[in-house]
Measured scan of single mutants.
Amino acid sequence: MDTYKLILNGKTLKGETTTEAVDAATAEKVFKHYANEHGVHGHWTYDPETKTFTSTE
């Protein structure tokens, strides 16, 4: 398992979190669920070199 990072740049919520996942697709599902639960619906990007997802509203 690898550690993946999420950076949230929402209108009402900003911050970072991490998750352990078997691959990027699994981490993306976890992070999108997390963002949706916190009302963040933004544009998603992923940097495979740093294993970092960013959601920007």
Rank of each mutant, 00 (worst) to 15 (best):
M1N: 08
M1D: 05
M1I: 09
M1A: 08
M1W: 13
D2T: 14
D2V: 12
D2P: 06
D2F: 14
T3N: 05
T3V: 12
T3L: 12
T3D: 04
T3E: 08
T3H: 07
Y4G: 03
Y4P: 02
Y4C: 04
Y4E: 02
Y4L: 03
Y4T: 02
Y4R: 02
K5L: 07
K5G: 03
K5W: 09
K5C: 08
K5Y: 14
L6R: 00
L6G: 02
L6Y: 03
L6D: 03
L6M: 04
I7M: 05
I7T: 04
I7D: 03
I7W: 03
I7Y: 06
I7Q: 04
I7C: 07
L8K: 00
L8T: 04
N9S: 09
N9I: 15
N9C: 15
N9R: 11
N9Y: 13
G10M: 07
G10P: 02
G10A: 05
G10W: 14
G10C: 09
K11S: 10
K11P: 12
K11R: 13
K11A: 12
K11N: 11
K11M: 13
K11I: 15
K11F: 14
K11H: 13
K11E: 10
T12K: 10
T12Q: 10
T12N: 13
T12L: 11
T12P: 03
T12Y: 14
L13R: 06
L13Q: 08
L13F: 15
L13G: 07
L13A: 09
L13S: 09
K14P: 04
K14V: 11
K14T: 11
K14E: 06
K14R: 12
G15N: 10
G15K: 14
G15D: 11
G15S: 14
G15E: 12
G15T: 15
G15Q: 14
G15A: 15
G15C: 15
E16I: 12
E16V: 13
E16C: 15
E16S: 10
T17K: 09
T17D: 02
T17S: 08
T17L: 15
T17A: 11
T17H: 14
T17Y: 15
T18F: 13
T18H: 09
T18Q: 09
T18V: 08
T18A: 06
T18N: 05
T18C: 11
T19K: 02
T19Q: 05
T19C: 15
T19A: 07
T19V: 14
E20P: 05
E20M: 14
E20V: 14
E20F: 12
E20C: 14
E20N: 10
E20W: 12
E20R: 14
A21M: 02
A21S: 06
A21F: 04
A21Q: 06
A21Y: 01
A21G: 03
A21C: 07
V22W: 12
V22N: 09
V22E: 12
V22M: 12
V22I: 13
D23C: 04
D23S: 07
D23Q: 02
D23N: 09
D23T: 05
D23K: 02
D23M: 02
D23H: 03
D23R: 02
D23V: 01
A24G: 04
A24Y: 13
A24L: 09
A24K: 12
A24P: 10
A24H: 07
A24E: 07
A25N: 08
A25W: 10
A25T: 10
A25P: 08
T26W: 07
T26N: 08
T26D: 10
T26A: 14
T26E: 13
T26P: 00
A27C: 02
A27Q: 00
A27N: 00
A27K: 01
A27L: 01
A27F: 01
A27D: 01
A27E: 00
E28R: 06
E28T: 03
E28V: 05
E28W: 15
K29Y: 08
K29N: 08
K29S: 10
K29E: 10
K29C: 10
K29M: 12
K29T: 09
K29L: 12
K29W: 08
V30W: 14
V30M: 10
V30K: 08
V30L: 11
V30Q: 09
V30N: 06
V30P: 00
V30T: 10
V30D: 05
V30E: 08
F31Q: 00
F31A: 01
F31W: 00
F31I: 00
F31V: 00
F31G: 00
F31N: 00
K32V: 07
K32R: 15
K32D: 02
K32I: 09
H33R: 14
H33W: 11
H33T: 13
H33V: 13
H33I: 15
H33A: 15
H33L: 14
Y34N: 00
Y34H: 04
Y34A: 02
Y34T: 02
Y34M: 05
Y34P: 01
Y34L: 06
Y34D: 01
A35Y: 03
A35P: 01
A35W: 02
A35F: 04
A35M: 09
A35Q: 03
A35N: 02
N36E: 15
N36Q: 14
N36F: 14
N36S: 13
N36G: 08
N36I: 14
N36L: 14
N36M: 14
N36A: 15
N36V: 12
E37G: 07
E37T: 13
E37P: 02
H38I: 12
H38N: 10
H38M: 15
H38F: 12
H38Y: 10
H38T: 05
H38A: 12
H38R: 14
G39Y: 05
G39K: 07
G39L: 05
G39R: 05
G39D: 07
V40P: 02
V40L: 09
V40H: 10
V40F: 15
V40N: 04
H41M: 12
H41D: 12
H41V: 13
H41T: 11
H41Q: 12
H41P: 04
H41I: 12
G42A: 05
G42P: 04
G42W: 14
G42L: 14
G42R: 03
G42K: 02
G42F: 06
G42D: 04
H43I: 15
H43P: 06
H43C: 15
H43L: 14
H43N: 13
H43R: 12
H43D: 14
H43K: 12
W44F: 11
W44V: 04
W44Y: 03
W44T: 03
W44R: 00
W44I: 06
W44H: 01
W44D: 00
W44Q: 01
T45H: 10
T45Q: 09
T45P: 00
T45K: 07
T45Y: 07
T45R: 07
Y46N: 00
Y46V: 00
Y46H: 01
Y46E: 00
Y46D: 00
Y46W: 03
Y46S: 00
Y46I: 01
Y46L: 01
D47R: 03
D47N: 11
D47E: 09
D47P: 00
D47T: 06
P48Y: 06
P48R: 07
P48W: 07
P48T: 07
E49L: 13
E49F: 11
E49N: 11
E49D: 13
E49P: 08
E49T: 12
E49H: 11
T50R: 06
T50A: 06
T50W: 05
T50Q: 06
T50I: 06
K51G: 02
K51R: 13
K51H: 07
K51S: 03
K51E: 01
K51W: 04
K51D: 01
K51T: 02
T52Y: 02
T52Q: 03
T52H: 01
T52K: 01
T52W: 01
F53N: 00
F53P: 00
F53Q: 00
F53Y: 05
F53T: 00
F53R: 00
T54D: 03
T54N: 05
T54W: 10
T54Y: 13
T54Q: 06
S55M: 15
S55F: 15
S55K: 03
S55H: 09
S55I: 15
T56G: 05
T56F: 09
T56A: 07
T56S: 09
T56W: 10
T56R: 06
E57I: 05
E57Q: 05
E57G: 04
E57V: 06
E57P: 05
